[in-house]
Nucleic acid binder design. Structure first.
Lengths: 170, 170
DNA sequence: CAAGTTACTGACTGATCAGTCACATCTGGG
DNA sequence: CCCAGATGTGACTGATCAGTCAGTAACTTG
């Protein structure tokens, strides 16, 4: 659905609560009324968008991991990390995850986030063959990427910011 | 300020955009009009709340780290981690950080987040004496805590969820 | 007690936004 | 050509919310 893929970028800016449906509609080149005709409501649209986002994230990770061919788990994880860090350039997929996580007080959104994280964890485990501890570490540094992108720490030239983003940003 | 400390809990539920000032006012036991009299606007109130939140977080970490007395950096970091994980029980301080991070498209909020993270990073480095890489790892696992709290993964009894929260939640 | 100052509020306004609905305008099949 | 379904929209409504303002109550100080 074209609307959903445009919605990723639209919601990525300000998140669920702060993005009017009219903005998503404009980004998709249709009227707000039509969006409500295709989706049961703003919430349904957002959930579909989040699902789509995690699809793309999972696909990106799998592609990155499989690119190194059969290799030691740590090497595959490293390749997947590099693929994820590359998403920082785009920003949209990372920002949407962040906003979805922050809107988890809405049960439907929380469930979408759980589904998405579950898919990511399973894909990373399966493709890398790494043990749970290594997968957890992978996820932790992934979440650190989110902070770096949100606060745009790559643009901060101070010692503390370099500590946070060492080896990740720029 | 009493209003600010009550605002932490109020904003922690649904975040900046989804929490009306009237809700904060009610939590503080005053009228919405009075909140606008004391603060330049909703944004000013939120920024003050975020600053207060990072004050508390930093203080919690420092207290946790100093409790072990002079010790090896890794041991101090472990104590600080334990102190941070304890915040999960409260939820409010962690959720507010998350919501502040997600509202970073508002420049004033982004600046408040940067100030807060800077204070945390400096405090952790100073009290633990750990090298930047270890501090970065500390922060990464801290961010992982955020995901666990947001999506309430402690309540999910599935393999992927245990991978994410191993050694942190439950 | 008078006068000033601080603490606080009810009642409003203007803007924004989710969601609806009646109404177009295409499209292909018989 | 006619009709049925799909694709789409403009114009509305009702609710919510940030922010204002005029005014009241409660202290403080001389």
């Amino acid at each position: 659905m074209k609307i959903v893929s445009r919605a990723v970028a639209a919601f990525a800016h300000a998140g669920y609560h702060a993005t009017p449906v009219s903005e998503v509609a404009e980004a998709a080149g249709v009227s707000p009324a039509y969006v409500f005709r295709l989706f049961p409501g703003k919430l349904g649209l957002f959930v579909a968008t989040v699902d789509h986002c995690y699809d793309q994230v999972t696909a990106t990770l799998v592609r990155g991991g499989e690119a190194v061919g059969p290799a030691a788990p740590d090497d595959v994880l490293a390749a997947m990390s590099a693929a994820y860090v590359n998403l920082i350039r785009d920003r949209n997929l990372i920002m949407l995850q962040v906003h979805a996580q922050s809107a988890c007080d809405v049960p439907e959104i929380r469930d979408a986030v759980r589904r998405g994280v579950a898919r990511v964890v399973r894909a990373v485990s399966r493709v890398s063959g790494a043990d749970p501890g290594a997968v957890q570490r992978f996820l932790a540094y992934g979440q650190l990427c989110h902070l770096i992108v949100q606060a745009d720490l790559g643009a901060v030239d101070e010692s503390w910011a370099r500590t946070v983003s060492a080896g990740i940003s720029h």
